[in-house]
Simulated scan of single mutants.
Amino acid sequence: MIDITKIRAITLDLDDTLWPVWPTIGRAETALQAWLATHAPSTAVLSADAELKKAVRAEINARYSDRAHDLSFLRLQSIRALLQQAGDPQHLAEPAFEVFFAERQRVDLFDDALPALRFWSQRYPVIALSNGNADVHRVGIGQHFHASVSAQSLGVAKPDLRIFVAGAAAAGVQTHEVLHIGDDAHADCVGALAAGMQVAWLNREGHDWTHGDTRPHLEVRDLHALCASWPDYVA
């Protein structure tokens, strides 16, 4: 169990913790494809080929392996590579990416997300700690966050110890005074445990723990169950 008396701040994952990420990415891909069909039809034809697009992304990931933490950069380069291959103007890469990125911020929150955010943000500094490129302010939940630390901004991704240390620093506390909450057993839980944080694993799908004997302090199926650790929480 977590010890709430020792918590002075909360770091919180975003994708698949507060909202399901793949429906969001799917809508963003659809918006990008529609934009390309109007502004770069030849690129749209290539982009509609799932295997070709996958191969282009794999090549970009390999070429820029030192930028694996920066999903926005990799997405932009993938769009640029498709434009180049199709013979369309390269300057279209930036506006095309902005179409994708804007739609990527339109998320459908899990039902338990807002009640939990309201509850925690009234009691602690809450820090977004994400490997993704969602912007809590563009998503519309920025008022619940004290700060955001992303892999893109810091240059390292979870489970790297440095991103957890940066999250604690953003809250003005030590890592052992932080409760980290996230859905990814490896990136979130293993990383935060190594940083000395208390850890709550949000295991919505009921996956098995396969990362050794050191386990999260608490495993829950939803955020209501986690908030119930506080005696004054009312769902």
Rank of each mutant, 00 (worst) to 15 (best):
G140E: 14
A96Q: 09
D108I: 04
M1A: 04
V165C: 07
S47W: 06
L161W: 02
T210D: 04
L109W: 06
A58H: 08
L202G: 06
F145Q: 08
T38Q: 12
A37G: 05
S65W: 07
Q77Y: 13
D188P: 14
A44E: 01
Y124S: 10
G172N: 04
A151L: 02
K54S: 01
I25W: 13
L154Q: 13
H144V: 07
P20L: 05
D13K: 08
V178E: 09
A40T: 12
S150F: 14
A86R: 07
A9S: 10
S42C: 01
R75T: 10
P20E: 13
A81C: 00
L223R: 08
N133M: 13
W201I: 12
G196S: 09
T43W: 03
H180D: 06
V165I: 11
H217Q: 13
N131F: 14
Q122A: 11
Y64T: 02
I2L: 11
T175D: 12
A37T: 09
A102M: 06
V56D: 00
A147Y: 07
F145M: 14
D183P: 02
L161H: 15
T5I: 01
D232L: 01
I10P: 06
D183F: 03
P20H: 10
I60C: 06
A93S: 15
T24Q: 02
A194R: 11
A134E: 11
A44M: 04
D88V: 01
A86D: 02
L202D: 03
A55E: 10
H186M: 04
S130E: 10
D188S: 10
A166E: 05
D183T: 08
A9T: 09
A50P: 00
E98M: 09
Y124A: 11
D3C: 07
A157P: 10
S148W: 10
R215L: 02
R67P: 06
I181E: 01
R204H: 13
D135C: 07
P159W: 07
D188R: 12
Y233L: 11
N131S: 14
R104V: 05
H144L: 08
G172K: 00
E29R: 12
H176Q: 14
R63I: 05
D49Y: 02
G182F: 05
D222K: 00
T175N: 15
D70V: 04
S153H: 13
E103A: 12
K53V: 09
R204Y: 12
E94G: 02
T210V: 09
A200F: 06
R8I: 01
L193G: 14
A86T: 03
L14V: 11
W230S: 07
G142D: 04
V139M: 15
V156E: 07
R57G: 01
H91F: 06
K6G: 08
D188L: 15
L83P: 05
H217V: 03
D49V: 03
V126A: 13
A93I: 12
D135N: 11
R118F: 03
L76D: 03
E51W: 03
A128E: 09
D208T: 15
D232F: 00
S42L: 04
L18K: 03
S121Q: 10
A166M: 00
R67Y: 06
G212H: 11
I4S: 04
V45N: 00
R118G: 09
I141G: 00
L46G: 06
F73A: 00
